[in-house]
């Protein structure tokens, strides 16, 4: 017996709609749950006061500062290094055994659990290089963690730029570097930035790496060589050790809002950029 195509079409449409709807529902539920539970405890004082009594009282300012500094260090290192590597792979070498091996390595690294980067960072930065538990150790370890993603996304974005842009630029007398900066990067930029934004997001979310390499000091960091905690770590400790449910939720709400704001600004910026290019 054969099911008539009009029926299979209906079934397909209904199941696809349901699948998509449940995915969205799960997301909305999780985010809503945290925001409803947390936002009511978020006050101006909560955002601007020091952490008191291990987080039972006071605010989360040191964790906010810790998060910002660590992400800055991580992305400040990973973005230039990653984009440079991607340019090298996509534009400066010929495809061959070497690039394939490098790319395979990068793909493997992208799939390595973050705790491994935590351990690596602990051994290299904290112990061997003597940076101790510090923002700099944490930032460097996070940089190592997000580097593969940034390289991979940037390289893919550059490879997606039409060949003929490169040919035209070269035929007009552009050097290879000018081809990169004037015929490839401008058009790969949205993709490249996507990788960087993913990297920022992952650095903000990460707990394992940060605990291993930056420790979890509650004091306000005074230099990059001080230990500090990020909001994720703060949340993790509050929730795991049952210190304060309300403050844990409030921290999570701030965390989610931060990520939302970063994503929304980044994507609007990118959208503007692309529309600007097309129309201008």
């Amino acid at each position: 017996m054969r099911i008539p195509p009009s029926i299979t079409q209906k079934i397909a449409k209904i199941s696809l709609t349901l699948a998509c709807a449940s995915a969205v529902a799960a997301l909305v539920f999780v985010i809503g749950f945290v925001l409803v539970g947390g936002l009511k405890h978020v006050t101006w004082a909560f955002l601007t006061e020091p952490i008191l009594d291990m987080g039972r009282a006071g605010g989360i300012l040191p964790a906010i500062v810790g998060t910002i500094l660590m992400v800055f260090v991580a992305i400040g290192i990973a973005a230039p290094l990653g984009i440079a590597s991607a340019i090298y792979l996509a534009e400066y070498t010929q495809e061959g055994k070497v690039t394939q091996t490098i790319r395979f390595g990068i793909n493997c690294l992208a799939g390595v659990p973050s705790i491994i980067f935590g351990l690596f960072g602990f051994i290299l930065f904290v112990v061997m290089l003597g940076f101790g538990w510090s923002i700099i150790s944490g930032g460097l370890s996070l940089a190592a963690m997000v580097l593969p993603t940034i390289i991979r996304t940037a390289e893919e974005a550059m490879r997606a730029v039409p060949r003929n842009y490169r040919d035209v630029a070269a035929s007009l007398g552009a050097t290879r570097w000018q081809v990169v900066t004037r015929a490839v990067l401008p058009y790969a930029l949205p993709g490249v930035l996507t990788g960087v934004i993913l990297g920022i997001g992952r650095s903000i979310e990460e707990t394992a790496v940060v605990i291993f390499t930056a420790g979890s000091a509650v004091q306000m960091p005074r230099s990059l060589f001080d230990s500090a905690r990020t909001m994720s770590v703060h949340f993790y400790i509050l929730a795991r050790e049952g210190i304060s449910n309300d403050n844990a939720y409030a921290t999570a709400a701030v965390l989610i809002c931060t990520i939302l704001v970063i994503n929304i600004t980044a994507y609007t910026m990118m959208h503007r950029l692309m529309r600007g290019r097309r129309a201008a």
Partner: peptide, 30 residues
Amino acid sequence: KLRRTVGMVFQRPNPFPLNIFENIAYGMRI
């Protein structure tokens, strides 16, 4: 310098996704 002396027009029209002015100014900018 050679590529400046010898211009090339390709098979498919392939302007850059820039405005008209910048397309023509491209080589001079380079």
